[in-house]
């Protein structure tokens, strides 16, 4: 269809393309909206008439997911883990990135590349030694262990991102501060960090998103239901349905608990998120 229309010139092809693109956008919005609506419907109704709105108004689905299926406890775990890890991550990465961006020596150049290599290592490749290591110090099946892993495993990306941000800041202000007698540590804390605020916030948000959705590490390192994070709660909820009977209404309520905070964040800070995520490729 697209091929034949191209002979009729730009207009028709373009209009067809625009139609398809809007269809795709409507599809995405539609799936999201359907998920929200299904979360308020009864299980049998969802399966009998997926396209209708019968039995709408089952607010009990959310209560069921939140308390009976452990999404409430998981949400608390996740919020604590995500904020804690993201803040500590940025606190550790910022000085390192500043040193890498500002030193301009051969060592710092090689070191920046050395850190960047970590971005290319799939976590599945190192999960076995990590597991043995944490088991030996008693940190498997603990939120502390998960916290340490989250900080360590997100370091390469965060250092990379922040090195780019510090590198893009003008150096003149720092030089002026030095001439005024500020030491290098004070210059970093009082001049460079505030100047790089935008980058630090972006790093915080991107890590928060990544860790909010993180599943693999949690899956390997956490076994207790009380310690599970939101993605684990969702996986666990699906698995228990094998015995307790399927309830897709409550399942979609659980899905909403995972997605809606991300949607809110995206509506609020979408541009910053998209720019931060694609920064490496387009610069």
């Amino acid at each position: 269809m697209r091929k034949s229309s191209s002979r009729h010139g730009h207009g028709l092809l373009h209009r067809g393309g625009v139609g398809l693109v809007w269809l795709l956008a409507v599809f995405n919005v539609g799936v999201l909206a359907w998920m929200g609506l299904a979360a308020l419907r009864d299980h049998t109704a969802i399966f009998a008439e997926p396209w209708s709105l019968s039995s709408f108004g089952e607010f009990g689905n959310f209560a069921k997911a939140w308390s009976d299926s452990g999404f409430g406890a998981a949400a608390l775990n996740t919020v604590l883990l995500v904020t804690g890890s993201a803040v500590v991550l940025v606190a550790i990465s910022a000085p390192a990135a500043y040193a890498l961006a500002r030193s301009g020596t051969r060592v710092s150049g090689a070191m920046a590349l050395f850190f960047a290599l970590g971005i290319g290592i799939p976590v599945q490749v190192i999960v076995i030694p990590l597991f043995v290591m944490l088991e030996n110090i008693g940190l498997v099946n603990s939120l502390t262990g998960l916290f340490i892993l989250y900080v360590a495993l997100s370091l390469p990306f965060t250092v990379f991102l922040l090195t780019a941000f510090f590198g893009s800041l003008p150096e003149e202000v720092e030089e002026a501060a030095a001439i005024d007698g500020a030491g290098p540590l004070r210059t970093f804390l009082q001049i460079s960090l505030p100047l790089a605020r935008g980058g630090l916030i972006t790093a915080l948000i991107l890590n928060a998103i990544g860790l909010w959705n993180e599943t693999f590490i949690a899956l390997v390192f956490v076994q207790d239901t009380e310690l599970q994070t939101l993605p684990l709660a969702l996986l666990g909820f699906m698995q228990t349905q094998q015995y307790s009977g399927a309830d897709y209404g409550a399942l979609f309520a659980g899905v909403c608990i995972l997605v809606l905070p991300m949607l809110a964040l995206y509506v609020w800070l979408g541009r910053r998120i998209v720019e931060g995520m694609t920064l490496g490729a387009v610069k």
């Binding site: 000085p95 030193s103 301009g104 710092s108 850190f115 370091l155 390469p156 030095a178 540590l185």
Partner: peptide, 23 residues
């Protein structure tokens, strides 16, 4: 720049240690 260089290793040490141990 010279004074900043003295801070290079202290600044990257925590990140580097974690990176060496966990990657």
């Amino acid at each position: 720049a010279r004074r900043r260089r003295a801070l290079f290793w202290p600044f990257i040490a925590p990140a580097l240690a974690l990176y060496l141990v966990f990657f």
